[in-house]
Design a protein around this nucleic acid. Sequence first.
DNA 1: GCATGTAGTTGACAAAGTCAACTAATTACC
DNA 2: GGTAATTAGTTGACTTTGTCAACTACATGC
Lengths: 148, 148
Amino acid sequence: MKQHFINEVRAFNRFYTHIIGLVNDHILHSEYSLPEARILFELYYRPGLTASELIGMLDMDKGYLSRILRRFGEKKLVGRVVSEEDRRVITLALTAKGKAAFEVLNRASDEQIEQAFGNLSEKDSQALVEKMTEIRRMITKNNILEYK
Amino acid sequence: MKQHFINEVRAFNRFYTHIIGLVNDHILHSEYSLPEARILFELYYRPGLTASELIGMLDMDKGYLSRILRRFGEKKLVGRVVSEEDRRVITLALTAKGKAAFEVLNRASDEQIEQAFGNLSEKDSQALVEKMTEIRRMITKNNILEYK
DNA sequence: GCATGTAGTTGACAAAGTCAACTAATTACC
DNA sequence: GGTAATTAGTTGACTTTGTCAACTACATGC
């Protein structure tokens, strides 16, 4: 019984890994890497983040992040402002160009999802989303994982 | 409405990407890479596969796979037998040692899932699995994605 | 003020993945 | 049955991605 549960979860994980791969495909074929896209995403929705915060959120190496941010700076995708309160920290935000870049990625992503899930009926789409939401709720509610 | 659907799917994808990351964590800390683990997995359940079949299933570069398989051969994890019918193809199967290695990984994976999902009640576990199964069913049934 | 800690950078390196050229065997087809 | 085209897998050269530790500059505790 317990083992059955584990097996089913694993099967779902494999399955969904594949779906995510398909849906992320456009990023692979864009000029951004997956980590780069995630950084753009976070900065789009939460301008003013610091590098440290990004590191925590995305669980990535700070050296690695530092380099990506430098490149993004050079390409004028993100602005970097030394914090007033603490001159060690740099607050980050997308420039207009950065936002535009993200929006392009985002539209491609929308299309990818539409293509993947598009031929579900209105009713099925709704049912699907409900199940997804429930799964999220169940997992987070049970605190199960410290979801940073 | 449509956009709402897309946004929800995306939110779930991000969420579940994170879960998968946590659950795959043990592989990262094992002596195998994720692709290596996937290869062990496939060969465990489908001995006799050929390299080409693996390439199709795992969608990976043949050169890359070839090297991994060579290492696995050197480490005596997989046996490689030239096919009788077609002497270009090599059929693959885990050795006893390979099976044992997979089983270790697998147990660690079980533990990771138990740790992650373990404090769900029996009832909730069942509900969770049902929703996962339904999602899979909905996605595959609509043939939505050619799930190779 | 000095020891300790933290944010971010840098250099050196290792791991992961890609691409194209190549060998050996097989199939297509005249 | 011989030659062209195809296919399975290998190899070399390379790029990208990610890791680790040392380092600088600033901040904080005491």
